[in-house]
Amino acid sequence: MANHSTSHPTHVQHHFVDADQQFDSAKMGMWVFLVNEILFFGGLFCAYIVYRSWYPELFTEAALELNTFWGAVNTVVLIGSSLTVAMAIRSVQKDQIKGLKINLLITIALAIVFMVIKGFEYSHKFHLGIFPGEFYTFEGLEHAKAPIFFSIYYMLTGVHALHVLIGIGLIYWIYRRAVRGDFSSEYYTPVEITGLYWHLVDLIWIFLFPLLYLIE
């Protein structure tokens, strides 16, 4: 520690000893925050599991109303965006700021594609009268608890979509900072922790996809 005493670069906040301590702290803080995100979605997954254990037949019937093809496309889109975020971090680690910017833009584009597809899926369901809860008017399903399935569906995908929107905002902010020249291989903490957030959004979807779309 004592040998860091001379260097205190401008991006290191005054209360940290050195850049390493700042980077490690930021990353750990983000992981602790991700723990909280997992438990946040955990509540919804718990509701899903309880209702599925009560009404397995409802889930099989109702899942037919979801479009597996578009669900799968969205899965691929999100995986692709995770890959580009990982590539963006690699670029900044190697001081390739141009690569960083390009990868961030591709990520934003993929995230927007995800949201557009989601929007089409939602509007198709609204068209059929599949609204959450008491606004549900669809007649294609016999099951008395069908509105509850769709309530869970809308809550899970809706909260996830909200996270995607926040992610788009964050990545755009990172992009603006990259344009401004804030990042280098010496300092890329915000890129790293935003990347962690984005991967978590991907992780959640990896479970949502089989749980909602792939029930046969």
């Binding site: 990353k27 750990m28 991700l34 723990v35 509540g43 975020v85 962690l196 991967h199 978590l200 992780l203």
Partner: peptide, 30 residues
Amino acid sequence: VAAFFMNLYWDTKFNAMLLLMAVAFFMLMV
């Protein structure tokens, strides 16, 4: 995704433990 995109494979083991702890408490709740 966790191991290679989120770098847990090369990262300090504590961050991986945090992730496992989150999963464990979720399982407990369920």
